[in-house]
Simulated assay, not measured.
Amino acid sequence: MATTYAALLRGINVSGHRKVPMAELRSLLEGLGHRNVRTYLQSGNAVFTTDRTDASEDELTTELEDAVEERFGFRVDCLVRDAAYLRAVADACPFPAAELEGKQLHAVYCSAPVTPDRFAALDREAFLPEDFALGDRVLYLYVPDGLGRSRLGDAIARPAVTKGLVATGRNWNTVLKLVEMTEES
Protein backbone atom coordinates (compact mmCIF):
# COMPACT_ATOMS: atom_id res chain seq x y z
CA MET A 1 0.00 0.00 0.00
CA ALA A 2 1.38 3.41 -0.96
CA THR A 3 1.79 6.20 1.56
CA THR A 4 2.14 9.90 0.83
CA TYR A 5 4.52 12.02 2.87
CA ALA A 6 5.72 15.59 3.11
CA ALA A 7 9.43 16.22 3.52
CA LEU A 8 10.26 19.41 5.41
CA LEU A 9 13.83 20.59 4.93
CA ARG A 10 15.14 23.05 7.49
CA GLY A 11 17.07 26.21 6.67
CA ILE A 12 17.68 25.88 2.93
CA ASN A 13 17.65 28.62 0.28
CA VAL A 14 17.78 31.36 2.92
CA SER A 15 19.64 34.50 1.83
CA GLY A 16 21.46 32.56 -0.87
CA HIS A 17 22.91 30.01 1.55
CA ARG A 18 22.60 26.22 1.50
CA LYS A 19 21.05 26.22 -1.96
CA VAL A 20 18.90 23.26 -2.87
CA PRO A 21 17.10 23.88 -6.16
CA MET A 22 13.62 22.37 -6.09
CA ALA A 23 14.10 20.59 -9.44
CA GLU A 24 17.16 18.87 -7.99
CA LEU A 25 15.29 18.00 -4.79
CA ARG A 26 12.54 16.39 -6.88
CA SER A 27 15.17 14.44 -8.83
CA LEU A 28 16.86 13.35 -5.61
CA LEU A 29 13.58 12.06 -4.13
CA GLU A 30 12.80 10.21 -7.36
CA GLY A 31 16.29 8.70 -7.21
CA LEU A 32 15.41 7.35 -3.76
CA GLY A 33 12.55 5.43 -5.40
CA HIS A 34 9.69 7.78 -4.57
CA ARG A 35 7.04 8.85 -7.06
CA ASN A 36 4.49 11.64 -7.54
CA VAL A 37 7.18 14.01 -6.27
CA ARG A 38 6.17 17.65 -6.07
CA THR A 39 7.66 20.66 -4.34
CA TYR A 40 6.06 23.76 -2.89
CA LEU A 41 7.82 27.11 -2.75
CA GLN A 42 11.61 27.33 -2.56
CA SER A 43 11.85 26.79 1.17
CA GLY A 44 12.17 23.03 1.33
CA ASN A 45 8.72 21.50 1.08
CA ALA A 46 8.31 18.32 -0.94
CA VAL A 47 5.51 15.79 -1.22
CA PHE A 48 6.09 12.24 -2.42
CA THR A 49 4.49 8.82 -2.48
CA THR A 50 6.28 5.60 -1.67
CA ASP A 51 5.32 1.95 -1.80
CA ARG A 52 7.86 1.12 0.92
CA THR A 53 5.86 -0.26 3.80
CA ASP A 54 9.03 -1.24 5.65
CA ALA A 55 10.33 2.31 6.16
CA SER A 56 9.42 4.50 9.12
CA GLU A 57 9.28 8.29 9.00
CA ASP A 58 12.62 8.36 10.84
CA GLU A 59 14.23 6.02 8.29
CA LEU A 60 12.89 8.07 5.38
CA THR A 61 14.21 11.21 7.09
CA THR A 62 17.70 9.77 7.54
CA GLU A 63 17.80 8.56 3.92
CA LEU A 64 16.83 12.03 2.71
CA GLU A 65 19.36 13.80 4.94
CA ASP A 66 22.12 11.44 3.74
CA ALA A 67 21.14 11.90 0.08
CA VAL A 68 21.06 15.71 0.39
CA GLU A 69 24.51 15.69 2.00
CA GLU A 70 25.91 13.42 -0.71
CA ARG A 71 24.37 15.47 -3.54
CA PHE A 72 24.90 19.03 -2.25
CA GLY A 73 27.88 18.67 0.08
CA PHE A 74 26.17 19.83 3.28
CA ARG A 75 23.83 18.23 5.77
CA VAL A 76 20.28 19.51 6.11
CA ASP A 77 17.97 18.62 8.97
CA CYS A 78 14.74 17.16 7.61
CA LEU A 79 11.45 15.87 8.93
CA VAL A 80 9.22 13.46 7.02
CA ARG A 81 5.58 13.29 8.05
CA ASP A 82 2.69 11.35 6.52
CA ALA A 83 -0.57 12.81 5.22
CA ALA A 84 -2.60 11.63 8.23
CA TYR A 85 -0.24 13.39 10.65
CA LEU A 86 -0.34 16.63 8.67
CA ARG A 87 -4.15 16.54 8.63
CA ALA A 88 -4.24 15.84 12.37
CA VAL A 89 -1.97 18.83 13.07
CA ALA A 90 -4.19 21.13 11.02
CA ASP A 91 -7.37 19.80 12.63
CA ALA A 92 -6.00 20.08 16.19
CA CYS A 93 -4.98 23.74 15.94
CA PRO A 94 -6.09 25.44 19.17
CA PHE A 95 -6.09 28.91 17.61
CA PRO A 96 -8.88 30.28 15.36
CA ALA A 97 -6.98 29.55 12.15
CA ALA A 98 -9.89 30.44 9.83
CA GLU A 99 -9.99 33.94 11.34
CA LEU A 100 -6.25 34.64 11.03
CA GLU A 101 -3.89 35.54 8.22
CA GLY A 102 -1.42 32.80 7.31
CA LYS A 103 1.52 34.87 8.58
CA GLN A 104 -0.06 35.11 12.04
CA LEU A 105 -0.11 31.39 12.72
CA HIS A 106 2.71 28.90 12.37
CA ALA A 107 3.25 25.22 13.01
CA VAL A 108 6.73 24.37 14.23
CA TYR A 109 7.15 20.68 13.47
CA CYS A 110 9.53 18.87 15.82
CA SER A 111 11.46 15.63 15.68
CA ALA A 112 10.24 14.52 19.11
CA PRO A 113 7.41 15.34 21.49
CA VAL A 114 7.45 18.89 22.83
CA THR A 115 6.82 18.92 26.54
CA PRO A 116 5.84 21.80 28.82
CA ASP A 117 9.11 21.60 30.76
CA ARG A 118 11.01 22.89 27.69
CA PHE A 119 9.06 26.14 27.95
CA ALA A 120 8.86 26.48 31.73
CA ALA A 121 11.46 29.28 31.80
CA LEU A 122 9.46 31.43 29.35
CA ASP A 123 7.28 34.09 30.93
CA ARG A 124 4.31 33.75 28.58
CA GLU A 125 2.67 36.89 29.98
CA ALA A 126 5.67 38.95 28.84
CA PHE A 127 5.01 38.04 25.21
CA LEU A 128 1.25 38.67 25.02
CA PRO A 129 -0.65 38.87 22.76
CA GLU A 130 1.72 36.34 21.17
CA ASP A 131 1.15 32.82 22.39
CA PHE A 132 1.90 29.17 21.72
CA ALA A 133 0.32 25.78 22.31
CA LEU A 134 1.81 22.31 22.29
CA GLY A 135 0.58 19.47 20.11
CA ASP A 136 1.79 16.08 18.88
CA ARG A 137 5.41 16.81 17.89
CA VAL A 138 4.30 20.32 16.93
CA LEU A 139 4.24 23.74 18.49
CA TYR A 140 1.49 26.09 17.34
CA LEU A 141 2.71 29.67 17.36
CA TYR A 142 0.36 32.67 17.24
CA VAL A 143 2.17 35.86 16.25
CA PRO A 144 -0.32 38.63 15.34
CA ASP A 145 2.36 40.88 13.78
CA GLY A 146 4.10 38.05 11.92
CA LEU A 147 7.12 35.94 12.76
CA GLY A 148 9.65 38.53 11.60
CA ARG A 149 8.63 40.83 14.44
CA SER A 150 7.98 38.15 17.02
CA ARG A 151 9.82 38.26 20.33
CA LEU A 152 8.19 34.96 21.32
CA GLY A 153 9.40 33.30 18.12
CA ASP A 154 12.94 34.41 18.92
CA ALA A 155 12.66 33.12 22.49
CA ILE A 156 11.35 29.74 21.36
CA ALA A 157 14.16 29.36 18.81
CA ARG A 158 16.88 29.69 21.47
CA PRO A 159 19.10 26.64 21.91
CA ALA A 160 17.99 26.19 25.52
CA VAL A 161 14.46 25.51 24.28
CA THR A 162 15.21 23.56 21.10
CA LYS A 163 18.20 21.55 22.38
CA GLY A 164 18.10 18.02 21.01
CA LEU A 165 15.24 18.74 18.61
CA VAL A 166 15.03 19.26 14.90
CA ALA A 167 12.40 21.98 14.58
CA THR A 168 11.21 23.63 11.40
CA GLY A 169 8.35 26.07 11.11
CA ARG A 170 5.80 26.70 8.38
CA ASN A 171 3.23 29.47 8.19
CA TRP A 172 -0.41 28.39 8.21
CA ASN A 173 -0.86 28.85 4.45
CA THR A 174 1.95 26.36 3.88
CA VAL A 175 0.57 24.00 6.53
CA LEU A 176 -2.75 23.87 4.69
CA LYS A 177 -1.13 23.58 1.26
CA LEU A 178 0.93 20.58 2.39
CA VAL A 179 -2.20 18.93 3.78
CA GLU A 180 -3.91 19.50 0.43
CA MET A 181 -0.96 18.21 -1.58
CA THR A 182 -0.56 15.04 0.50
CA GLU A 183 -4.27 14.29 0.29
CA GLU A 184 -4.34 14.72 -3.51
CA SER A 185 -1.91 11.87 -4.10
Rank of each mutant, 00 (worst) to 15 (best):
R81M: 07
S56H: 10
V161I: 08
D136L: 07
A84L: 10
Y5P: 02
G135M: 12
D58P: 00
A2L: 14
R38W: 09
T174S: 06
G153A: 15
S15V: 04
L128Y: 15
D136E: 13
E57T: 08
L60D: 01
G153C: 05
A83T: 00
L86G: 02
F119V: 08
A120V: 11
R18H: 12
T49V: 03
N45Q: 03
V47E: 11
L8Y: 03
D136S: 10
D145Y: 03
P159F: 09
A157G: 09
A67V: 03
E65F: 09
Y85V: 00
M181P: 09
P113M: 04
R81I: 04
G11F: 01
A90Y: 02
T62H: 05
P96Q: 05
Y142R: 13
D54W: 07
I156Q: 03
L100A: 12
R52W: 05
A23F: 06
G169S: 12
A83V: 02
A121L: 11
I12G: 03
A84S: 11
R87I: 01
E125S: 11
T3P: 05
E57A: 14
A160G: 07
A67Y: 01
R158C: 08
L152D: 01
L41M: 12
A6L: 07
L122S: 08
D145S: 09
T3V: 13
R52F: 12
T162R: 10
A67D: 05
L141V: 00
L32Y: 01
G44R: 04
L141P: 00
E183D: 15
S27Y: 02
T4R: 12
D54F: 05
T39D: 15
Y140F: 15
L41F: 10
K163C: 06
H17E: 11
L9D: 04
S27K: 11
A55P: 01
E101K: 11
A2F: 13
L64F: 02
R18D: 04
E125C: 03
P94E: 13
N173E: 06
E183I: 11
V68G: 05
E59S: 15
R158M: 08
L176Q: 10
T182S: 13
L141C: 06
W172I: 01
E183G: 14
L28K: 07
E184D: 14
R149Y: 12
V143T: 14
V108H: 12
C93Q: 00
R75D: 09
V108Q: 11
G169D: 08
K19W: 12
A84E: 12
N171V: 00
T39W: 13
L165M: 05
N36F: 07
I12N: 05
V76A: 02
L79I: 01
T39I: 10
T174G: 04
R124V: 10
F127L: 12
A6G: 05
E63D: 15
L176I: 00
E57M: 08
E184N: 15
A107M: 00
A6C: 10
A107N: 02
V20E: 08
T39E: 13
R124G: 15
L100Y: 06
G169A: 14
Y5V: 01
E70L: 10
A67T: 03
V108S: 13
V68S: 04
F48V: 03
T62G: 04
R38V: 09
L178Y: 06
L134R: 14
V89Y: 04
W172M: 08
I156T: 04
F132Y: 15
G153F: 09
